[in-house]
């Protein structure tokens, strides 16, 4: 039986919620394969930004990776679903959707279009707004605020609909832009907000919960298919064990870190989400056909 070490790309560092999942996967894989199959994590985007990592796995240049679903909309329109605001209301709704037929169908599409196999749906969790201007009690409080989005048309449309002056900006520039005031506002999951020390440059944490962000654990499809059927099964089993561990850690860290961010001086606001949800309906309508109306409706229905 062959021995192998898989290089795994992570956007965040060794203490992150992503690393919890990747480490667990590695441990289980090593245990199940009796030491034959191991992993070597590469933290902080050392192998490239998320888009290049997804592309690289498809080309056989990178073994494995965990990324947000952000770059996948470039390969399969259906993945723009996860950029759409207020689609999933609870983590359980998202888990139900992802772990069932819809998640499988999305994974199958990514495999055929990008050559990337999703092993399991880990997560970044819900994304929230932080800014330096005022607490957000409703979308009207976003007026005139310069807000940074990821590179995504859907996200720009969302924040424009909410009333902000929204523009995309490269991730490496965000901290300084917020510190100097080129940008007032950004949005990310709580563990990321804590990990990159946004509490040093942002006063308000607003739990807007506007997007649920999955973080699939992936392997290049070519590489996966080159493994023996037994090893393929081991990889899938290790991922299946690691997914709930990662999700649990992500949810626990979110709760703990909200308190910690408050202790570090951020003003935490829990706005009524209904007005936000209403404001973004036109964005959902606008993108529904591109993403696939059935898929959007199925996702919206997953919580109820």
């Amino acid at each position: 039986q062959e021995s192998r070490t898989f290089e795994v790309s992570l956007p965040l560092g060794p203490e992150s919620h992503q690393a919890v999942g990747v480490h667990k996967f590695g441990e289980e894989l090593e245990r199940l394969s009796e030491g034959r199959l191991t992993i070597r994590p590469q933290y902080d985007n050392a192998l490239g930004a998320e888009r290049e990592v997804v592309e690289g796995m498809g080309f056989g240049l990178i073994d494995m990776g965990i990324t947000s679903t952000g770059p996948m909309g470039g390969f399969v329109n259906d993945f723009l679903l996860f950029d759409l605001p207020y689609i999933f209301t609870t983590p359980e709704a998202a888990y139900g959707f992802l772990d069932g037929e819809h998640g499988d169908a999305l994974a199958a599409k990514l495999e055929s279009e990008a050559g990337v196999k999703i092993l399991g749906w880990m997560e970044n969790g819900f994304r929230h707004n932080t800014n330096n201007v005022r607490p957000l009690n409703g979308p009207e409080d976003l007026a005139g605020i310069r807000h940074r989005t990821q590179e995504s048309r859907v996200q720009v449309d969302t924040w424009t609909a909410l009333g902000a002056n929204a523009s995309p900006m490269a991730w490496t520039e965000v901290f300084t832009a917020l510190q100097q005031g080129v940008m007032d506002s950004q949005e990310n999951p709580v563990p990321t907000i804590y990990d990159v020390k946004f509490y040093d440059v942002q006063r308000y944490l607003n739990l807007t919960k506007h997007v649920y962000s999955p973080a699939p654990l992936m392997m290049g499809a070519q590489l996966f298919n080159s493994l023996s059927p037994e090893d393929q099964a081991l990889v899938m089993e290790a991922a299946a064990i690691a997914v709930p561990v990662q999700r649990e850690a992500s949810q626990r860290m979110e709760q703990e870190l909200i308190d910690e961010l408050e202790r570090l001086g951020m003003t935490v606001t829990r706005p009524d989400l209904e007005p936000f949800r209403e404001r973004v309906q036109p964005v959902i309508e606008q993108w529904k056909d591109t993403v696939g109306a059935e898929l959007v409706e199925a996702a919206q229905a997953s919580g109820s």
């Binding site: 490239g48 930004a49 290049e52 690289g56 080309f59 056989g60 240049l61 490269a170 490496t172 520039e173």
Partner: peptide, 19 residues
């Protein structure tokens, strides 16, 4: 080490950067 596609991919990635 890896497929030669790494050559164009890494070269483009290195210069496709806003800063």
């Amino acid at each position: 080490l890896m497929p030669m596609l790494i050559v164009p991919q890494e070269m483009i990635r290195s210069i496709n950067s806003f800063p």
